[in-house]
Amino acid sequence: MTEAKIFAHPGESAWTPTPDGNRRRVLLHTDELMMVEFGFDKGGVGALHSHPHVQASYVAEGRFEVTIDGRTEIIETGGSFIVPSNLVHGVKALEAGRLVDSFTPHRADFLA
């Protein structure tokens, strides 16, 4: 069994484009938990979707319109939100920004 990576440093992970025109980089992961940084240009949209993973998100930079299960709020730098399993959710970047998302269990689709 490979030893889990337990530290991440700036610039270690490469950005990859997302299907919706944004970018992401997986920072760290184990089977149980994954941390991913997402970058958005102003007006960038994370389309409405759902997944079985529980997601906790921290707004590292910017302002986002966040919709979870039909409820929408504006969340800005320093704010956060949680998405329970299978709820429909999405975001719109009101300015350029970054989200740091944690998923449990890890998102195997982000490692493919």
Results as ranks from 00 to 15, higher is better:
84 P>A: 08
82 I>D: 06
110 F>C: 03
101 D>G: 14
98 R>P: 09
86 N>K: 08
86 N>D: 15
95 E>M: 05
104 T>K: 06
89 H>Y: 10
95 E>P: 05
108 A>N: 07
108 A>I: 14
104 T>L: 04
95 E>N: 04
107 R>V: 06
91 V>C: 13
96 A>S: 14
99 L>Q: 00
110 F>H: 13
99 L>C: 08
86 N>W: 10
85 S>E: 15
102 S>F: 09
81 F>N: 02
81 F>D: 02
105 P>L: 05
110 F>P: 03
105 P>R: 05
88 V>D: 05
93 A>I: 12
92 K>C: 13
97 G>N: 03
86 N>L: 06
87 L>W: 03
110 F>I: 04
90 G>Y: 04
90 G>W: 03
100 V>M: 08
106 H>N: 13
82 I>F: 09
94 L>M: 13
107 R>G: 09
104 T>C: 11
92 K>R: 15
106 H>M: 14
90 G>M: 08
101 D>T: 11
108 A>Y: 02
96 A>L: 03
81 F>K: 00
84 P>S: 11
84 P>H: 13
99 L>Y: 00
103 F>V: 02
102 S>P: 03
85 S>K: 10
106 H>P: 00
87 L>T: 11
90 G>Q: 00
81 F>I: 09
87 L>N: 07
100 V>N: 11
93 A>L: 07
109 D>H: 07
89 H>S: 10
81 F>A: 03
94 L>Q: 05
108 A>T: 10
83 V>H: 07
82 I>Y: 05
88 V>T: 15
96 A>M: 00
91 V>T: 15
98 R>W: 00
91 V>A: 15
99 L>S: 06
102 S>A: 15
106 H>C: 10
105 P>A: 10
107 R>K: 08
83 V>P: 14
82 I>H: 05
86 N>Y: 07
91 V>L: 11
99 L>N: 01
110 F>Y: 15
98 R>Y: 05
81 F>L: 02
85 S>G: 13
96 A>E: 01
85 S>C: 06
91 V>Y: 01
104 T>P: 00
98 R>K: 15
81 F>C: 05
83 V>I: 14
86 N>C: 03
94 L>R: 02
87 L>H: 09
82 I>W: 01
96 A>W: 00
98 R>I: 01
109 D>A: 12
108 A>F: 03
106 H>L: 12
83 V>Q: 05
109 D>T: 11
88 V>C: 02
103 F>C: 03
110 F>E: 08
90 G>A: 12
107 R>F: 01
88 V>K: 06
109 D>I: 02
91 V>W: 00
